[in-house]
Design a protein around this nucleic acid. Structure first.
Length: 217
DNA sequence: ACCCAGGTGGCCC
DNA sequence: GGGCCACATGGG
């Protein structure tokens, strides 16, 4: 099989799955909330939690920072890990209020890597969550790597067989081999997740991985 | 009765 | 730097 590059894989996925319209959120802060809640959790369960939060008017840093922890826990209950997640949302909200007056535009309007470092310092924010927030809430040109992306790369070996491992290596690989197009970054990550949801329940055995079939369409 | 889901942090070596 | 484990609900 010919070596496929990352852009070719994108085109195949885009043609197969169509447009994904990520991230479904009304505000940048809602992206942050969703990014925490969706960790190791199906989005369907997160949606319920987000509806609860909105019903309680708990969708700004100010109100979450000032809210009662038990109320928050009940609201996000369906998203799993609800105690951790409630606490983390509260701590992140307090941080944003304290340092940026709850103003997300102010938070994002600095050097991207500076913002990234700051995000990574927050409890409950690792690489993937930080980068999702940068891309989808801050509109920064950062490629998000998740478990599906790693699996896809093991399978398809984009760019040849120099296998890419480790989060930062993989991120740089994608960023160095794609057009500098933020909308494409958003769509690509969404498509990879869609691919994983629909076709990659199997173990990552490369030879018979369904990913290959999609890619050849 | 399992397995997985749009991960992270703490601990161990 | 990698390999485990807890965190927890909901759907297949």
């Amino acid at each position: 099989m010919d070596v496929m590059n990352v852009l070719e894989i994108y085109d195949k996925l885009r043609a197969h799955f169509g447009r994904q319209y990520w991230w479904p959120a009304e505000t940048p802060f809602e992206v942050i909330v969703g990014a925490i809640l969706t960790q190791q959790t199906a989005w369907k369960n997160v949606e319920k939690a987000i509806i609860n939060l909105k019903k309680l008017d708990l969708m700004t840093p100010e109100v979450i920072a000032a809210s009662n922890l038990e109320t928050l826990e009940k609201a996000v209950y369906t998203s799993g890990f609800y105690r951790q997640k409630a606490l983390r949302l509260k701590k992140i909200s307090e941080y944003l209020v304290k340092n940026y007056n709850g103003n997300l535009s102010r938070f994002f309007s600095r050097d991207t890597m500076e913002v990234r470092k700051e995000l990574l310092g927050l409890d409950g924010v690792g690489f993937e969550t930080a980068d999702s927030i940068l891309l989808y809430a801050g509109c920064k040109r950062i490629f998000v790597i998740d478990a599906y992306t790693k699996r896809m790369c093991r399978c398809m070996k984009p760019g040849g067989s120099e296998v890419h491992d480790g989060y930062e290596n993989l991120r740089h690989f994608f960023e160095n081999n794609l057009p500098e197009d933020i909308e494409l970054y958003k769509e690509y990550h969404a498509l990879i997740v869609e691919l994983g949801k629909n076709y990659c329940k199997t173990k990552p055995d490369c030879e018979k991985c369904p990913l290959r079939r999609i890619a050849k369409l």
